[in-house]
Nucleic acid binder design. Structure first.
Lengths: 254, 254
DNA sequence: TTACACGTTTCCGCTGCGTAAAGGTCAACC
DNA sequence: GGTTGACCTTTACGCAGCGGAAACGTGTAA
């Protein structure tokens, strides 16, 4: 079986541009070029492409994929381990970034105490003109807090604690909801408390609260199977009940 | 106080190229241009740059930073929340990537059973021609495994379990080490067992084992304060003891 | 005057393609 | 034989955030 760019592309789920690019950088050359200059691929190329796409899915760069697939005696496991290290490093950086963003949001929303605010100012400065940024950053990240400036660490931990509080809040809502569902009445005191908690939870995620949007979201919990699955995880019918409670809750707001 | 590009750059820790680029994209314009065409910055620009760099450290794009800093009534908290969502999405993708890479390494190293290997073949195929990749990927990732193909989930879980075993291995080494340190003898049976566990732990991370490299690393545990801090976390002197045990261990290998 | 340490603009390069533009080729249909 | 439309080709710009180099002007101290 022989394939032109479009056929191979359709088979493997990549664009023709991608195939031409892979040819250009020498990653996947066609089996031959026909008299009209068309690229013609064979079965061997199909297999090679599968392999290439597999590594691509793992986030390996095309340059490295080339090394891996071009020489059969290349140690691909070693390459993957090296690749994993890079990914882990990226993960650590990303985690740190998220913590910093969380801390900044909390600070900006005024949920910090004054003394924490002061620390935050220091943290901000530190973040910007961190002159020892490069020196051993990977190792410090990897092997922990020992070397991290103490006040910064406190701040970050605080932001984490706040985040945990948020998850606790969601948990509490679930608990209340489970109780409320026993009464069968979404307008009951307890169900309305759950709806209020849901609003509080939302406020941390949303840029600004709006009751119509809240109501719409509640409806989506029922309409979208994936959301329903999430809320019905503990008990079936929870999503519907929560929606009703929220609709009542939002309607009651003037 | 007035600054030229290089002075401001030195002050804030950025290159002159960066400052020129920020001028070019309209992110930070100099206060004025002098008669020779030099960019001249004032105190106001210093503050603005600090702010810009702060957001840059949080991983915000220059385009968004421009919006945030240019209009004072812009809702920066909302922007940061949006930014956080992007980061969280990236984090989920990265986590999945790492799991897949781990699974691949385990498979390639032959640590999988045959039946798991078969699953892995399916996993590989799935990974490459995942046609429903786009549909609701975020929500699926976010709200869990309900929709994830069962056999794949088993595979990933297995790879995670294997990874946990690795951490258990390190923990075991620490326990042994604590015991061994009581004897005070790094050549004792128990200390040598700890060194052996350390080697096993290493083998998962290293592309290939080599006793000289092992010995060198052990020495570094003592020389580099950050490593020392990690190993001495539970008990001071652990790093030195571990080094001695490893030096004896590697020396004994023919 | 000469050296050299600054400043300037302009442009290429990095990754992995997407998206034109401008043009040949192949099969089918009139 | 002409036309249409679905293919194919190459060339090249764009994306983010600069790094680095080339080619040239300026300020100042020896």
């Amino acid at each position: 079986m022989e394939y032109t760019v479009q056929k191979l592309g359709a088979l493997a789920g990549v664009s023709t541009r991608t195939l031409r690019y892979y040819d250009e950088i020498g990653l996947l050359k066609p089996a031959r070029i026909n008299s009209s200059g068309y690229r013609i691929y064979g079965e061997k190329e199909v297999d090679a492409l599968q392999q290439i796409l597999f590594y691509r899915e793992l986030g390996v760069s095309l340059e490295e994929i080339k090394e891996i697939v071009s020489s059969p005696d290349f140690d691909s496991v070693a390459a993957l381990k090296e690749h994993r290290e890079k990914l882990l490093e990226k993960q650590r950086q990303l985690d740190q970034l998220i913590k910093n963003v969380n801390a900044t949001i909390l600070s900006a929303e005024g949920r910090m105490t004054m003394s924490d605010q002061e620390k935050f100012e220091g943290f901000k400065k530190k973040l910007v003109d961190d002159n020892e940024k490069k020196y051993g950053a990977e190792i410090r990240e990897k092997y922990g807090d020992a070397a991290i400036d103490e006040s910064n660490r406190k701040l970050i931990n605080m932001s984490e604690k706040n985040y945990e509080q948020l998850q606790a809040l969601e948990q509490k809502m679930f608990t209340l909801l489970a109780e409320a569902i026993e009464t069968g009445d979404p307008s009951s005191e307890i169900a309305q408390q759950a709806a209020d908690l849901h609003k509080k939870w939302l406020c941390f995620h949303w840029k600004e609260y709006n009751k119509d949007a809240h109501a719409n979201l509640a409806q989506m919990y029922v309409d979208d199977k994936r959301f329903t699955a999430y809320y019905d995880k503990q008990k079936k019918g929870t999503a519907v009940f929560l929606r009703d409670a929220i609709l009542i809750y939002t309607a009651k707001q003037q």
